[in-house]
Design a protein around this nucleic acid. Structure first.
Lengths: 205, 205
DNA sequence: GCCATTTCGATACGACTCGTAGCGTAACAC
DNA sequence: GTGTTACGCTACGAGTCGTATCGAAATGGC
């Protein structure tokens, strides 16, 4: 009908949000700072995002798209690769300080919880599916009997990998280095083949 | 020398903190609220805790002591038990809203990070060691070759269990129910025996 | 029992953030 | 052009933060 919303402002705001996260960290990031840095009025921010948390989710979600799953020739290699790149991502100050913060706020804000699930979790879950498909083609894993079982296994593996790496890096606050990754991958490989056998023996799940 | 600090005030403050967490949640919890509820001046809070986060860590850490590892006769049973009780703990509003929040702030506050590690992580790590010892006595696992390897395995297992359950419950925001626990335990058992064999074959780690 | 010492409750403070409202101006669709 | 909408700017009340200051209260040492 009339003047459309400036898409330039959108990206300027998201860029400014990431830059401010790096510089000040989540707790000291304010809507005022972001607005000033983006060369935009504070009102413009509130016209597009209901809260600081929602803004940060969008600003950070894009960063997760850099996660890839290059084919390293084996399931072991693929897992070690994705763990490494995820750990690298978590070391960036933008993600490190804000990821836990938005999750924390989401425990009291259902809309934000859905927002995170769609923008980050579900959006990256294809990585697990892809790794699984590859392993099946290589004959390292067999396909699950029921489609529902397969989906639940993908969900489980995603929670285990993401959860373990996040916990190691941010809660235990110790490095996700080669030694840890090797050991974790060994654990996961053993677990996966165990799941494979268990679901082959019919009734299990 | 003179008037000692009131221990009654200490516990009144911690109780008030938990109660306020339940009622208002982390984001709306203020030092003013806690002080008023505890029947204490705001100044008294700041004399003992440097920040809201540090106060909440102490208030919540005690709750983790209710985690137990009753002997269910098998490693499988023990794991399922501890996963269940951890999930129950995470469902309580005091922990749910505040755990991620303090971790988030700890990414920019080294002192707080150490505080969390000592009060929560290290304090509960004995559960893993205990489960492992039991499994060895039952003959379900063998002891690691080097003591350093054993310690690293305990750290890894702790991160995997705690991380996966937290991620499932708070990030994916889906229930840690019996089906999930069964599947996760199966994964972990397979992984543990795999680690066992790998570390038996000498040089591995 | 008395006194020095330290904590305690109360209050006030400036600085900051929040989210919203009101305004005139600028940019686009038709 | 003209109407409609987004924009930048400013101001606002409410609320929080962490600190400073004060007299009163409680305790240990003598």
């Amino acid at each position: 009908m009339a003047r459309p919303r400036s898409t330039a402002a959108d990206s300027a705001i998201l860029d400014a949000t990431r830059a401010t996260l790096v510089e000040l960290g989540w707790p000291k990031l304010t809507m005022g700072h972001v607005a000033a840095r983006a060369g935009v009025a504070k009102t413009t921010l509130y016209r597009r995002w209901p809260s600081k948390s929602a803004l940060v989710v969008d600003a950070v979600a894009i960063l997760f798209d850099e996660l890839e799953l290059p084919d390293r020739g084996s399931l072991r290699g693929d897992i070690e690769g994705v763990v490494g790149s995820f750990a690298t991502l978590l070391e960036r100050p933008e993600t490190k300080t804000s990821l836990m913060a938005v999750v924390a706020e989401s425990t009291r804000d259902p809309a934000l919880r859905v927002h995170i699930r769609e923008a980050i979790v579900q959006r990256q879950k294809h990585l697990v599916q892809e790794g699984r498909d590859r392993a099946q083609r290589r004959g390292e894993l067999t396909s699950a009997p029921h489609p529902g079982t397969a989906a639940r296994q993908v969900d489980l593996i995603f929670d285990v990998i993401a959860g373990a790496v996040v916990h190691r890096a941010l809660v235990s606050a110790e490095p996700v280095d080669g030694a840890w990754t090797t050991m974790f991958t060994e654990l996961l490989l053993g677990g996966l083949s165990s799941l494979d056998e268990a679901s082959d023996s019919a009734s299990a799940y």
